[in-house]
Design a protein around this nucleic acid. Structure first.
Length: 805
RNA sequence: GCGACCGUGGCGGAACUGGCAGACGCGCCAGCCUUAGGAGCUGGUGGGGCAACCCGUGGGGGUUCGAGUCCCUCCGGUCGCACCA
């Protein structure tokens, strides 16, 4: 057909060519100071593991990159940065395992990640790469800590932590499996009390919750955060002891107060010891010791046998005036509410179990027809509640609180599940918390001009049994003068939580070249808040919550002009393999490198996006990849056929119509991240081109542009073959003609009594009467109508006719 | 226990506010082209039936002219939280 044979599609060569050309031409580096239409396209930066980028990362980054490239083709100045979240216990444990210092290991891993990230064709602006382990970065993480410290939002207190005697370190709750260490399955985890640094995130609970309603987030993510913050409305009620002490309890069910037959204090409750009578002392102390031996996790695991002990003391139920016994039990947690509860066994499952176990009285105060005790529902009517009998639960509760409030024994109260954020880690691989402890002045902030407090190189960074970070062993670093009084001081040896590093990285990206400020005011004003944020729901709670909190604090302190960092967030799904999560243990981990090598980055990118809906994820099966490759080959040939000299540039009307329909569909679907259906629409169009107007440039070029976000190297190469000098990313996204997309004939369904009996092709927009006339003339319809009168005609324009007999 | 999401061919998955179920792709079958094909092209492919037709979206019930889609209920799966008062 052609006198010059078309070059074959060779992904490896062509992708290398375009990757170096993008770098040379600075294609991916927008003007950060004077953008016409800034679009900050953010994706969650990876933890640079030794295994390298995995398919899950690639899936997420590809989806986000497609969105960014699409926006660029629509004329935005897209800033798409990338960085590395390289501090943390994960890296440190790995370094311990392989016996290489993390300071050596991490740069190596980052180098490997950088190579992989370039290879898959992300539109990254590498001028603004960052790593949280870089002193130039964590200097400002420490600065951030100091801002919170100075604002009174960072404080120290003793808190219970999990301690593994084998690891000689604190463990996160996630690392404790049924009471045992995840790395030492035969070692029981202990509970220790240690001084820890906290951020007062609970002060922002109400705002963090309210703000969720104003932002455009995936529902699943917003719901997870909402549950995590966990707002409950109720009241604090006071129970007085004969000795004049007040036990304050929190309850969401003040309506059940008349049914409160005993009080339970958490074992750590300050009154627990004070209220214990002499004859109960030894029993209570024994119980407290028993509780302390348990680790935090197994104490919190539900449906286990209730334990507890009577203190010997009594308190007065403010409603009934009765004296009720005071107990302590570990099913009551000091961290929630007031650390004390009124037990209503008739209407609470846990109290019911406890009362049954210890033979305490059970008094029903809510009537619900036909349900055995305990009844937990609030859809009932009060009984045994004096003057409140007969009221519905909600109303009764309000009235009881009002009645007691008059006597100073009740206060309405909102309680949150969320706790203050413990940012201390007794570990090595993190940013040192910039505090100096002085015997005279207490904890003193390191002056800002002395930042960063550099993490000293310690050859043996293994944690020891002391519960103190390995940093304390570096004496020259540890002992310093107090910046306030000049006296003897010691550095804080805890490092901060990795989640603090990642709670502000999006602020740093546009300003990485400034060493004298964390984020430049002008840059920040131009680029923030983040236009589009895409990431996994595994960070729905911690990372996204902490980022929102930090941003609110910075806003309140006057450092940024917004209090919502991510007004638009979309959660992507997860890639699984053979129906199961990928993991090393299962041996089903997919390594992207091998697939990119075999098929090319473009084919692999598109295949990942074609697996399933981006926001739901999909099941990775390698058998489908070839379908994408066939599609790209097909487009490759179509484009070259359009170049063949002498090929008639005929413009097939029906293909033209299909083009406009395709642009409409692909535009809408790429906007909403429905990449799988956008790809199938482009496939349909390529099939139509093959059947119809293959020779025509006007019909092929828009397809090449639409493919550019998905298969960027491929599109660049074809664009060049089609005679364009400049990057395809300087072209404009094709527009469509709504009238043309809507023109043509439609096939409408013909039903009789709701059953499909025939199909009819009519011009679009045909009037009901004309359509019905043609329907009634149809032989296969006549057979079913069979002379019976048509009672009703349902007509849906351009879709269906239903004759009801 | 609470909350969220999901059950559609042999497989991954389509189906806008209720309106032709199975788009697109894999796989499979047949044919063409080939010395050959894990290449390419053409056609077919939910189940039953020679056919007209009938049956089909986890099970059961309901609303509706019409239900994969809405409501109730049960079953199964995934994720998050979990002795949160």
């Amino acid at each position: 057909m052609s006198n010059v044979p078309a070059p074959a599609y060779d992904p490896a060569a062509l992708e290398a060519k375009w990757q170096s050309r993008w770098a040379e031409r600075r294609t991916n580096e927008p003007d950060l100071d004077r953008p016409a239409k800034p679009f900050y396209n953010l994706m969650m930066f990876p933890y640079p593991s030794a295994e390298g980028l995995h398919v899950g990362n690639m899936f997420a980054f590809t989806g986000a990159d497609i969105h960014g490239r699409f926006k660029r083709l629509q004329g935005y100045d897209v800033f798409e940065p990338m960085g590395f979240d390289a501090f943390g216990i994960h890296s440190e444990n790995y370094a311990l395992k392989v016996g290489t210092h993390p300071a050596k290991l991490i740069p190596r891993n980052i180098e490997n990640f950088r190579r992989q990230l370039r290879r898959f064709g992300g539109m990254f602006d590498w001028r603004h790469e960052l790593s949280t382990t870089d002193p130039a970065y964590y200097k400002w993480t420490q600065w951030l800590f100091l801002q919170l410290f100075k604002a009174g939002l960072a404080y120290r207190k003793k808190a219970a932590v999990n301690w593994c005697p084998a690891c000689k370190t604190v463990l996160a709750n996630e690392q404790v499996i049924a009471g045992y260490c995840e790395r030492h399955p035969d070692v029981k985890v202990e509970m220790r009390y240690l001084e820890q640094w906290f951020f007062a995130i609970t002060k922002y609970a109400e705002r963090l919750l309210a703000n969720l309603a104003k932002i455009d987030w995936s529902d699943s993510t917003a719901t997870l955060q909402q549950n995590w913050i966990g707002r409950s409305e109720g009241a604090e009620l006071a129970f007085e002891t004969p000795g004049g002490q007040k036990i304050t309890v929190f309850t969401t069910r003040p309506d059940t107060l008349f049914g409160a037959t005993y009080i339970v204090l958490a074992p750590e409750h300050p009154l627990a010891d004070a209220l214990t009578t002499a004859e109960q002392k030894s029993a209570v102390r024994a119980y407290l010791r028993e509780v302390q031996a348990k680790d935090i996790v197994s104490r919190k695991v539900g449906d286990r046998q209730k334990t507890g002990v009577f203190l010997g003391a009594y308190a007065r139920n403010p409603a009934t005036g009765e004296s009720i016994p005071v107990w302590t039990a570990d099913y009551v947690l000091m961290e929630y509410g007031t650390g004390a509860i009124m037990a209503v066994p008739a209407h609470d499952k846990r109290d019911f179990e406890f009362a049954t176990e210890f033979h305490l009285p059970i008094r029903q105060v809510v009537r619900i027809e036909g349900e055995p005790l305990p009844t937990v529902s609030e859809d009932g009517v009060l009984m045994n509640s004096g003057e409140f009998d007969g009221l519905a639960c909600a109303e009764g509760g309000r009235k009881i609180v009002a009645w007691l409030a008059g006597r100073g024994l009740a206060t309405p109260r909102v309680q949150y599940r969320i706790h203050d954020w413990c940012i201390s880690r007794q570990r090595y691989w993190g940013p040192p918390i910039p505090i100096i402890h002085c015997e005279r002045c207490g904890p003193v902030a390191v002056p800002e001009q002395d930042l960063p407090v550099e993490l000293p190189f310690i050859e043996d960074f293994r944690p020891d049994d002391s519960g103190v970070s390995p940093l304390a062993r570096h004496k020259e670093w540890y002992f310093v003068k107090c910046p306030q009084c000049g006296g003897e001081g010691r550095r804080e040896t805890d490092v901060s939580d990795t989640f603090l590093d990642s709670a502000w990285y999006f602020l740093r990206y546009p300003s990485t070249e400034f060493s004298d400020r964390p984020f430049d005011p002008a840059r920040t004003k131009t680029w923030l808040p983040v236009t589009s944020y895409i990431g996994g729901n595994e960070h729905a709670v911690l990372h996204l919550l902490y980022s929102r909190f930090v941003t609110m604090v910075l806003h309140d302190l006057g450092h940024v002009h917004f209090d919502t960092p991510f007004p638009r967030f979309r959660a992507h799904g997860m890639i699984i393999k053979d129906g199961a999560k990928m993991s090393k243990a299962r041996g089903n981990v997919v390594v992207p490198d091998t697939y990119i090598q075999e098929w090319g980055a473009d084919t692999f990118r598109m295949y990942l996006m074609f697996l399933g809906p981006f926001q739901m994820g999909g099941d990775f099966r390698e058998t489908g990849i070839v379908g994408i490759r066939r599609f790209l080959d097909k487009v490759w040939h179509l484009a070259h056929e359009s170049l063949t000299p002498g090929a008639s540039p005929r413009l097939d009307k029906s293909v033209e119509r299909k083009l406009h329909q395709t642009i409409k569909k692909v535009t809408a679907d790429t906007e909403t991240l429905d990449y799988n259906t956008a790809i199938s629409a482009m496939m349909e169009y390529a099939n139509a081109l093959r059947e119809g107007g293959a020779g025509s440039r006007e019909l092929v070029e828009p397809l090449v542009v639409m493919l550019a976000p998905y298969a960027p190297h491929f599109a660049e190469e074809l664009w060049e073959h089609l005679g364009h000098q400049r990057s395809v990313f300087e072209a404009r996204w094709p527009s469509y003609d709504e009238r043309l997309a809507a023109a043509g004939d439609v096939e409408i369904a013909v039903q009789v009594n709701g059953k499909l009996r025939s199909r009819l092709t009519v011009p679009r927009g045909m009037a009901q009467d004309a359509v019905v006339a043609r329907v009634l003339a149809d032989a296969s319809v006549k057979k079913f109508v069979d002379g019976k009168p048509v009672k009703k005609v349902i007509y849906v324009q351009d879709r269906l006719v239903n004759l009801v007999l």
